[in-house]
Structure formats: structure tokens, C-alpha cells
């Protein structure tokens, strides 16, 4: 077959982009890891503070990533506490209980929230504080809980979508069996379908943790700072890994700080990839469990 010029160009381009994209990603991430991995170690996390003292909070860490890691950890934990219930609830509702109209409206709202720029969530938190200051709480300020609340809005659609998909993947035969054995709707839902979909939902939760850990734009508005030490409480300022990386890239003073930035970036990259891998494993085992039984 004789080919037209556009097709030949297209064929060339496919090969070209297949070479270009992996190369770019590998070069960028390889460079990051090359500079970041060698600084990994006790020094990076704890600086000159003895690790045990730092872990138990007996001594402050000035030149390490420990406070940022702890900040990110609490941020993620709080976010998931706040988002888990509404997020999975939404997903279950959409998959099992909603009427077609409710499905349409709520589904559209969740989709819209999913595409919402994360900075808008941050702005929302910022507005909330402004509003509180002007009304009932004159000394309200941004802090950990507010940031977690806004992040919860950000990960809510992730949770809802993955829960909905997991519930939809529960095989029809199981539903039929539940109906045949006279389960009431909620009995079937809570004792059969939810346990059956648990692994899929868990995969979504891990993905959501990843989203919450990596996001920077939201916390930029809601109380992250560069030098807070360990978070002082629910309403205190905090540090976070992702923000530290941004801060170093724009404000670093010396080579030491720069290396810390590379270390932090490599660490965050590692955490994100690890979370993705766990989510994929969970999803894979969920699919395998129900494969061919629909």
C-alpha cells in the first residue's frame, strides 16, 4: 500500500513521541534522584538532632525534614478522617441508592468537584477564615484543621468515584443471591456488597492519600509555613513536605538547603510512587477476585 505524506509524518511522530516522553521523564526524575538519593539518611530527616529525641518531640529539629514529614502525616490523617465518611458515602449512594435524577445531579456535582483546580479549594478555606474573622471569631487563623478540611474537599471526588466503581464491579450474581435469600436492602449492602467491594474502596483511599500528600496549592492558602517545627495543634501552623520543596526552589540560600530540597523532592516522589503501587496492587487483587464471576 502506498502511503500519503500525512500518514508517514504521523508514523514518524508516533515513534518520536514514544521516544521523547519517556526520555524527558527519565531525565528529569533521574536527575532528581541522582542528586536527592545520596543525601537521604538520618541527616536529611533530623539534621544534627539525635533521632530518638526528635521522634519523641524532646528536642526540636532545625535543619531536617522531620517536622515537614510529621506535618504532612497529620495533614493526611486529618484529611482522610474528614473525607472518608462523606466520600465513600457518596460513592455508595451513587452506586446503590440514588434515583436516576439524583444520580445525574450528584454525579455532575462530583465530576465538577473532581475537575476543580486545587487552588480554588485553598481559596475557599481562605475565604472561610476571612468570613469568621469578620463575624464571630475575630482571631480565627489558618491552620492544620482548615487545611485538612479543604484537602478533604479535594479528595472527596477521588473517593466517591473509586467507591462507585468498586460497588459497580460487585458481580450481579451476588446481588441476585442476596435478593433470593431475602436480605433487606441495607442488610445486603452492609453485610455483602460493602465487604465484597472493600478492596476496591481501599485502593481508592490509598489514591486519595496520595493526592492529599502531594498537593501544594491548597495548603499554600491555609496555613502552611516554612519554619513551624512540629504542628502545635489542630489550629496551629504546620510544615509540609510539598511546601518545603517549593520553598527551597524559590528561597534557597546555600548548597546545603538546595540539597535538602532535592532530598525532600526525592522523598515525596518515592512516597507518591509507593502509594500508587499499593493502590494498583489492591485494585488488581480486587479485579482478580471477581473476574469472570459477573
Amino acid at each position: 500500500m502506498k502511503h500519503s505524506i500525512p500518514f508517514l509524518c504521523f508514523r514518524l511522530l508516533t515513534g518520536f513521541s514514544a521516544a521523547l516522553v519517556p526520555t524527558m521523564v527519565c531525565v528529569l526524575m533521574g536527575y532528581l534522584l541522582m542528586r536527592g538519593v545520596p543525601v537521604m539518611g538520618k541527616e536529611l530527616l533530623f539534621g544534627s538532632t539525635p533521632p530518638l529525641d526528635a521522634v519523641f518531640g524532646r528536642a526540636p529539629v532545625w535543619d531536617g525534614l522531620w517536622p515537614a514529614c510529621v506535618g504532612t502525616f497529620w495533614l493526611v490523617v486529618l484529611t482522610m478522617l474528614l473525607a472518608l465518611f462523606p466520600g465513600t458515602g457518596c460513592g455508595i449512594f451513587l452506586a446503590e441508592l440514588a434515583s436516576p435524577l439524583q444520580k445525574k445531579i450528584l454525579g455532575a456535582a462530583v465530576d465538577m468537584l473532581a475537575g476543580m483546580p486545587s487552588i480554588v479549594m485553598g481559596l475557599f478555606g481562605f475565604m472561610l477564615i476571612l468570613l469568621l474573622r469578620h463575624t464571630i471569631l475575630p482571631d480565627a487563623n489558618t491552620g492544620l484543621l482548615l487545611a485538612a478540611g479543604c484537602l478533604a474537599l479535594l479528595v472527596l471526588p477521588v473517593l466517591a468515584a473509586s467507591t462507585r466503581e468498586a460497588m459497580n464491579a460487585v458481580p450481579r450474581s451476588l446481588r441476585l443471591a442476596a435478593a433470593a435469600s431475602g436480605f433487606s436492602r441495607s442488610q445486603a449492602l452492609f453485610h455483602l456488597f460493602l465487604p465484597a467491594a472493600a478492596k476496591g474502596i481501599l485502593g481508592g483511599v490509598v489514591l486519595a492519600v496520595g493526592r492529599a500528600a502531594e498537593d501544594t496549592a491548597v495548603i499554600l492558602f491555609t496555613g502552611v509555613v516554612a519554619n513551624a517545627g512540629l504542628p502545635a495543634g489542630l489550629f496551629g501552623k504546620f510544615e509540609a513536605l510539598s511546601f518545603d520543596i517549593y520553598y527551597v526552589s524559590s528561597q534557597y540560600q546555600n548548597q546545603q538547603e538546595l540539597l535538602h530540597g532535592f532530598g525532600a523532592a526525592a522523598l515525596l516522589l518515592g512516597i507518591s510512587c509507593l502509594l500508587l503501587a499499593i493502590a494498583r496492587l489492591l485494585e488488581g487483587s480486587f479485579r482478580r477476585k471477581w473476574q469472570g464471576k459477573a
Partner: peptide, 10 residues
């Protein structure tokens, strides 16, 4: 899964 801030940093 690559965080945007990591892309930016690199």
C-alpha cells in the same frame, strides 16, 4: 502519581 511540585522542582 508524580507530584506537580516535584516536576516543578526538577
Amino acid at each position: 502519581a508524580i507530584p506537580t511540585v516535584v516536576y516543578g522542582f526538577a
